[in-house]
Design a protein around this nucleic acid. Structure first.
Lengths: 233, 233
DNA sequence: CGCGGCTTTGATGTTCATCAAGTAAAGTGG
DNA sequence: CCACTTTACTTGATGAACATCAAAGCCGCG
């Protein structure tokens, strides 16, 4: 279940994420990050960490797809969000908490860049531009999650399913045909309904020729109509 | 509708919030903040700012109660959270966005301490300890909002109403008898249901002797039972 | 092969949103 | 201060949306 460190540590100077996250980095700080980071690769289905685990790393996703979720005492999961490339995996409480407040597991084989949390704090304390940049990014990530929660909450089941299908198209895959990285149950856990309702709604969309379904493969045939349903028409 | 600046600018050295927010402040930085801040007082019902307004201040609540909410095109509001003393009013996107992504209005007469956003950025850039402290606080605030959203989402109407009643008791007022600072409609907008359902549920709680209602005045008579309902028993 | 998990559909009853109607409270203008 | 308007609150009735239960097919895995 543990991720596997890469044999060769990548050179952060070449890292395509440098410009995304670390604009304000001096070469020395980049070197610091580089020395204190580890890349882990995970296979689909593996767990990155669980709610309650000690926070050891600040980590972001270089590639792949993961889900952030919470489990209640009855064992039911609630998916907080699905994160893709360039998204933070550690967010929110990473600097204030000692333990993770949610679990992360992998939907599509993923590479995580993990920076020792204490090193991260030291670097942030030395480099205010970096702190500010981090704050901006973490703020944007939080805003997105909160916004998504409100959007989902105000829709009925049809709207919710349409909303998440459009999210897969527009935000995650960028095209109208894709393999669902999640089970029907996980969609239900994401939008706050039951597995059966998700299936039923997908079937209805299929019968109305809005989508085509072949197991995990989905093709959105009529994005405009889905958009209308998502906006609750 | 505009808040009214205090005649006498308070001395930040004496500010009871100093220890809450600004542990890492040097005296010079405190002076900077003090010179660049304004206190605004608002009456119940007034609007602090609206979704889409330019962000001018970083602001937090010294006293009173406010609601953060979004309005959709149909004019329906969704309450994101209710914020009390020591809570941030500007949060999340305040350093990355130029415009507010939500509106804020006042539930109980409030005093806001507002720091010019550009000054705030400058100070944060000069003072990494302050940046870090800010990041921790904003992270905690975001975590709380996201957590609350998930908790509400997974409950049925009875559980939702019980949850928010307990929030008023335990978190906002600290006692079992209080005046509701919101209308029934606003409770509905907070927990994602209709006004009628809120009223009906409150009436049922009343008939079961779990609470006593007298207009806006609520007394929780049986917190343990409400707790059970909130935890979906 | 058999087991368990995922998917699908149907049947059923509960929960919930909506509509309607009436009372109470609060604000407005003469 | 009173008539008027508006907003908040409350209850009931109704139908639609939804969760739950049940059963069966499918697939991968040990």
């Amino acid at each position: 279940m543990k991720g596997h460190p890469m044999d060769s540590i990548c050179d952060c100077n070449q890292c395509e994420l440098r410009n995304v996250f670390f604009e304000s980095f001096s070469d020395e700080d980049l070197g610091d990050i580089c020395r204190n980071k580890t890349e882990f690769t995970y296979l689909s289905g593996e767990t990155v960490f669980r709610e309650g685990d000690l926070i050891r790393y600040f980590s972001y996703l270089k590639s792949g797809l993961v889900k952030l979720f919470k489990s209640d005492q009855a064992g039911k999961d609630q998916i907080i969000t699905i994160a893709g490339p360039y998204d933070f995996v550690s967010l929110l409480g990473v600097f204030s908490d000692t333990r993770h407040s949610y679990s992360v597991s992998v939907l599509e084989d993923a590479v995580l860049c993990c920076i020792d949390i204490e090193s991260m704090k030291e670097i942030a304390l030395r480099n205010p531009g970096f702190s500010m940049s981090l704050m901006e990014r973490m703020g944007a990530a939080s805003t997105r999650i909160i916004h998504e929660g409100l959007e989902i909450r105000k829709r009925n089941t049809h709207g919710k399913v349409a909303y998440i299908l459009l999210k897969f198209c527009n935000e995650i895959y960028g095209e109208c045909i894709f393999d669902l990285p999640v089970s029907r149950r996980e969609i239900a856990e994401n939008i706050g309904t039951t597995t059966e309702n998700v299936i039923r709604t997908l079937s209805e969309f299929r019968k109305e020729k809005l989508i085509r379904i072949n197991g995990k493969e989905i093709e959105v045939l009529n994005p405009a109509a889905l958009e209308r349903i998502s906006n609750y028409g």
